[in-house]
Amino acid sequence: MTTAPETFRYRLASPAGSVFPGAHPGQMVSSGQLFKRHEPLIAAPDPRRIDLRASVLDPFGSYQVRVYQQKSTLDVYLIADLSASMSFSGSLNKQQILIDFLLSAASSAFSYGDSFGFIGCGRQLEQRWLLPGCRQMGRVRALAKNLENHVLAQGCESLPQTARLLPASRALVFLLSDFHFGTDRLKTLMHGLSRHDVIPLVLWDSAEYLDLPPWGLIRFQDMENGATRTLFMRPALKQKIVRAFEQRRRQLQQAFRAFGAEPLFIDGRYKAEHIDHYFQQRAA
């Protein structure tokens, strides 16, 4: 952790609802740069901002005050899948990517002055993998260090329970997982998170499908339940597996789009530019 983590720029698709002044366009009106609307002096008792021209034009003769949009803070949360399959090590270790992204997201949030929280989901929610919204990089680093030494265990059944740990107001939620579980669980999860702006980050590795050997006998052991399956790899079967992953990609896209979220597939190395790109595309 000698080099500072890469930061990326993010924004909400719709204005944030937080009352605290921050860096993101919000729904609050107060002091700011962007003119929002006129309000009667009773509603916005700030005589410094009385707009004389608007007051004269007002048919009812009341004083009109100019109100500005206040920039608000945003709660950024990272919900991470801590099931065993997330320790898959292909071209890169997924667990390491998770830690990289955790540090990167935290430092990005802190650079905006936003709070950052982390929820790690195993079979059950565990206190040590919960970080409530905070603004201390030290706590995030400590968490990252713990995560690095942790051997991930089977199961991510606690994912749908995360909704109650998130703030009531709209937050930016990064959902980091390989999404190697059934679509039903995905739907309940997304239902719970529908209040928030969810960015699904799908962590796949090319070793799972594109970089499989073309020929030979191989026995795969499921990292979650330990079941094994022997395959005789040959180009036709490899094609079938690649097609299965493409189909799964489309399935995931459809499932997320139904909830208004566009998944971002991280295949291989994590780069902050990918997230930058994603947010720029979304705004367009």
Binding site: S85, F88, S89, D178, H180, F181, E208, I218, R219, F220, Q221, D222, M223, E224, A227, T228, R229, L231, L237, K240, I241, R243, A244, F245, R248
Partner: peptide, 11 residues
Amino acid sequence: HSPYPWLDILP
């Protein structure tokens, strides 16, 4: 053995 994240996806 080779570890694999999700066997169900394999056709």
